[in-house]
Design a protein around this nucleic acid. Structure first.
Lengths: 344, 344
DNA sequence: CTGAAAGCGCTAACAA
DNA sequence: TTGTTAGCGCTTTCAG
C-alpha cells in the first residue's frame, strides 16, 4: 500500500456509481440487481457488466432499511464444541439454502444472561425469525421474543412452555425410556454420570426422567458423578473408575452424553470388564464417533439434523402443517442398543 | 393469539415511541441508549425507564446506515463439524467480547465458489472486518476482499500470498518437521492416510511437506489412502486395515487428522500390533479427544485458539504490532510425541 | 419497460 | 445539556 490512510481512503461503491457507469437510472439498476420487475435484456446486460467491472457489492443495510425486509435468521445455541450443535446448524443451513434466508449464529455458553445479550444484539438487526435452543430463558429474553413479532422456534427440547413454536424431543421421556429398557434387560444397580453444568437443562431432564423410570421398578440411582470441562473422553474414563471403585457391584452406567460414555467404554474394555454381561453402558446423542469404537455404545439419537431442518422450515414459512405459528413438534428418539446392553 | 394476522400486526417500536413516552427528544433518547454525549442523570433515567417499559430494541439497520459503522466481523470457515473450527471461533469470540464487535459465522463447505457466495452476502452487510480460513479463494473473492477497504485476515495457513493480513502456521513446514522426526526415530516404510477432499489445501500442504522431508532422507511414501465422508474414527480403522493388508511391512502411518489417527490407533491396539515398536503413528491437530485414548497419539498442535485470538485482535485494531494491515504472523506448532512414536 | 419523488429509523453536525 | 436539520443508500410507489 502506498497511501497514508489505507483503510479510510476507499469509499464503498453505491448504486449511483453503477448508474453513472452504465448510463441507466439508479432505479433500474436496482431492479436488475434484485431480479425484480421487467427490464429489457440489453439494459440488464449493460448494468450487470458495469456492476461486475466496478466490483459493486450492494449495501444490504440500506436495502433492508428501505424495504423493511431482512433475509437473516438468528440462531442461538449454547456451544459449538458440543458436537451436537454443529449438526443442528447444518440442518438449518441445508433447509434455508433454497429460501434466500441466511442463518446467523450466536453462542450463549450455556448462560441465560449471555443468551439474553446475544438475543438483544441479534434482534436489533431485525431478523426474519429466531431459532434458539431450549425453553429456559430469562424473563427479559422471553419478553423480547414475544414482542419481536416474528416466528420464534425453540428447539431440542419440548418439556416446557414455548414462546411460540417448538421442535424437539422430550428429554424426560428419553430418560424414562432408557430406564425402562435397562430395567427390562435385568440391570438393577445403576449409576448416572453427567455434566456438572447447572444450566444443561436437557441433561437434567434426562436424569429426572431416568430416575422416574427406575422408580417404576422400585429402584433408585445407586450413585452419581458429575464433571465439568476438559476432554470428555478422559473425564468419562476417570468418572467411570471413580464410581466403580466406590461401588464395585454396579451393573449399569448411564452417561449423559456419548463422549463420556465412549471414554467409560474404553476404560472398561481395558480393565477386561465383561460388557454388557457384568456391566451395561449407555450414552446419549447418537454421535458418529461411536461407529469407530471397539463396541457400539448403546445410545439414543437426538434427531439433531432433523430438528434443524424442521425449525428452519417453520421460520421460512414452509412448515408442512401450513400453520402460522405456535407449532409443537415432538420427535421420538429411537434407542440403539448397540453392544453394551445385554439383550433380554 | 387472538388477532387474525398474528405476524404482521405489531409494528416494531422506534426511537420516536420512546421519545414520546418519555417526553425527551429522539436525539437525546438516542444518546442515552448509546451512552454517547452528556445527558443529565434524571433525563437518562426517564429514558431508560420508558425504553425498558416499552420493550424497545434499537434498530441497528438504521443506526448503521446513519453512522456508517457496523459492529459485525464476518468469519468464514470451511466446516463446523471438523472440531478444529469451533476452537478458532471460540478464540475469536473471546477476543472480540470486550470490543463491542460481534462475530458472524458463515460456512463454505470447503468450496471456493460457496465461499465466494457467502463472502458476497456478508460484505453486503458492510462488516468491520473479515476473517477467513486459508489463502485459496476465487479471483472474484480476492477482488472483493481487496476492494472492501476493511481489515482482512486469512487464518490457519501461511503458505501463500495473503490479500492483507495472515495468521497461521505453515502446514508445509509442519509436514516437513513431522517427517524429519519420524525418520530420525528410525522409521523407513511410511504411508500417508488422509481426506480425499481436493479442497483441503492444508492437508495437501502437510502431505507435500511431509514428502519433501522424506525425500531429504532418500525416502518416498510407500502407500497412500484417502477417504471422504462418514465417521472419521471408523474410516481411520478401515483405511489402516487397508494399507496394512496391502503393505504388511509398513512401519509408520501418518494421518492427516487426529480423528482418523485415533481410529487407526484403536484398530492397531485391538490387533495386538506393537505401537510404537513395530508400527509408529501420528496425526495432526492436537485435539482434546486424544487425551482419553489408551495411548496418546503423536500429533502437532495447530494453535487454533491462539490463531483466532490474534486474528480478532488484528481486526479490532488492537494488534500488538500496532501495524495497520498487511501483518504476517506465523506460529510454530510443537510436535507432541505421545506414545506412538518410539524415542530415538 | 423506465424514471422521479419520498422516506425507511437512525445519527453526525451544528445550533441553541 | 438538549434540540434541529439533513442525510446515510436503498426500495416503494406512482407516474410516464
Amino acid at each position: 500500500m502506498t497511501s497514508d490512510k489505507p483503510r479510510e481512503t476507499r469509499r464503498a461503491l453505491t448504486l449511483r456509481d453503477v448508474s453513472e457507469a452504465s448510463g441507466v437510472s439508479e432505479m433500474t439498476v436496482s431492479r436488475v440487481l434484485r431480479n425484480s420487475g421487467d427490464v429489457s435484456a440489453s439494459t440488464r446486460e449493460r448494468v450487470l457488466e458495469a456492476a461486475r467491472r466496478l466490483g459493486y457489492v450492494p449495501n444490504k443495510i440500506a436495502g433492508a432499511l428501505a424495504s423493511q425486509r431482512v433475509n437473516l435468521v438468528a440462531v442461538i445455541v449454547p456451544s459449538l464444541s458440543n458436537l451436537v450443535f454443529p449438526d443442528v446448524l447444518s440442518g438449518i443451513s441445508a433447509e434455508l439454502e433454497e429460501t434466500g434466508l441466511q442463518p446467523v449464529f450466536g453462542v450463549s455458553n450455556y448462560s441465560a444472561e449471555r443468551e439474553e445479550a446475544v438475543l438483544y444484539e441479534m434482534l436489533s438487526w431485525r431478523p426474519t425469525g429466531v431459532i434458539l435452543a431450549g425453553l429456559e430463558h430469562t424473563d427479559a429474553a422471553r419478553a423480547m421474543l414475544r414482542n419481536a413479532g416474528i416466528p420464534i422456534v425453540e428447539i431440542m427440547d419440548v418439556d416446557g412452555e414455548p414462546v411460540d413454536s417448538v421442535v424437539g424431543i422430550s428429554h424426560r421421556r428419553a430418560g424414562l425410556a432408557m430406564a425402562r429398557t435397562i430395567v427390562k434387560a435385568g440391570y438393577r444397580r445403576i449409576a448416572f454420570l453427567g455434566t456438572k453444568m447447572p444450566h444443561d437443562h436437557r441433561a437434567r431432564k434426562r436424569m429426572e426422567g431416568f430416575e422416574a423410570g427406575l422408580a417404576e421398578a422400585g429402584l433408585e440411582l445407586v450413585d452419581r458423578e458429575f464433571y465439568s470441562g476438559g476432554s470428555a473422553l478422559k473425564k468419562g474414563r476417570e468418572m467411570t473408575e471413580a464410581v466403580l471403585s466406590r461401588n464395585p457391584d454396579l451393573d449399569f452406567l448411564y452417561y449423559s452424553n456419548d463422549m463420556i460414555g465412549a471414554g467409560g467404554l474404553l476404560w472398561c474394555l481395558e480393565q477386561g470388564i465383561d460388557v454388557p454381561g457384568r456391566l451395561g453402558l449407555a450414552g446419549f446423542n447418537g454421535v458418529d464417533l461411536l461407529e469407530g469404537l471397539p463396541k457400539r455404545l448403546a445410545t439414543m439419537d437426538a434427531c439433531r439434523h432433523k430438528i434443524g431442518r424442521i425449525a428452519a422450515r417453520i421460520v421460512s414459512g414452509r412448515s408442512e402443517s401450513g400453520q402460522i405459528g405456535g407449532e409443537r413438534i415432538e420427535l421420538t428418539p429411537q434407542i440403539q442398543l448397540g453392544d453394551t446392553i445385554r439383550q433380554a
